[in-house]
């Protein structure tokens, strides 16, 4: 137990160290940075405008009001923001595998997962974080509810679980590069685009789609389920308890896929 704790502390420390260096490198290219943050924000604001247009015609969707849906929407952005800012490296797994750059990661006495996760910093995540944060704040002030310390704590746990779920799904789908060996591997983008469905209440979809977003690629546990808990939607408080478990499950699956992939990693001829 002490050993595991020590290993985690070491991983966290080295992760911070490497990300610090990434940040310094990223800030050298300041104009790129502003541009990517700006464009990320623009995309999301456009999505919101669209949502506003829809709601100007119909007052609720399956019992969910405008601000509640904004909350779901924003949860997706927020976790996306965290995932890109801190774990952008997931998107580079394909590059590492295809170019044999994974070699150098395997030659260092530090977990490959930690090294892959920390291999890049996604400054555009700041845009997502800003928009998502402001939107969540707004939605919470527009919907009346009672906050207790317990509820605040659990909401934070839900957010952390969401970040883990999101990152794990990104990680796992990008590990497909171990099997799909062409440069334009579409699998991670396909999986990522499924998160579009998670921006709305799950109940509006057909059962097959619900199963996809709720079970196969459980994005529903990032926005929809936490929203049900926060807004005390009947019957959903209990499902929210599953969020941390789903997070652990996703992380475990991602780790397993990485290990399987590493066993058959072939590097490159030169």
């Amino acid at each position: 137990m002490r050993l595991i704790l020590r290993a985690w502390r070491r991983n966290a420390y080295l992760y911070r160290r490497i990300m610090g260096q990434n940040l310094r490198a990223a800030l050298e290219y300041q104009s790129d940075f502003l541009l990517s943050v700006g464009s990320a924000m623009l995309t999301q604001v456009l999505g919101l405008v669209f949502l506003g247009v829809v709601f100007s015609r119909i007052p609720t969707i399956n019992g969910w009001g405008f601000w509640q849906i904004v909350f779901i929407y924003a949860s997706i952005f927020l976790t996306e923001g965290f995932a890109s800012l801190f774990f952008e490296g997931t998107w580079r797994i394909g590059y590492f595998v295809n170019h044999g750059e994974l070699d150098r990661i395997l030659l260092r006495p530090l977990s490959p997962a930690v090294q892959l996760l920390s291999s890049a910093i996604g400054m555009n995540g700041i845009g997502n974080l800003l928009v998502g944060g402001v939107m969540i704040g707004e939605s919470l002030t527009h919907v009346h509810m009672v906050w207790t310390p317990g509820k605040i704590l659990f909401s934070v746990i839900l957010l952390l679980s969401g970040i883990v779920i999101r990152t794990s799904i990104n990680f796992a789908s990008n590990c497909s590069a171990f099997w799909v060996k062409n440069a334009g591997n579409a699998v991670p983008f396909m999986v990522h685009s499924i998160s579009e469905f998670a921006k709305y209440p799950l109940t509006i979809y057909a059962p097959a789609l619900q199963a996809l977003v709720g079970i196969v690629v459980p994005y529903a546990f990032i926005g929809y389920v936490p929203a049900g808990y926060v807004f005390s939607t009947s019957g959903m408080a209990w499902i929210a308890v599953l969020c941390p478990l789903v997070a652990l499950y996703c992380a475990a699956v991602a780790g397993l896929i990485l290990r399987t992939g590493l066993r058959q990693y072939e590097s490159t001829g030169n």
């Binding site: 160290r17 260096q21 044999g100 070699d103 150098r104």
Partner: peptide
């Protein structure tokens, strides 16, 4: 591997060495 560097591409050499020091404890 002579054909390929093990260094971090965007980090000064001395910082790479100092990161490696931490990785190797």
């Amino acid at each position: 591997f002579g054909q390929r560097t093990q260094l971090w591409w965007d980090i000064p050499v001395i910082e790479t060495l100092s990161l490696l020091r931490d990785i190797h404890e």
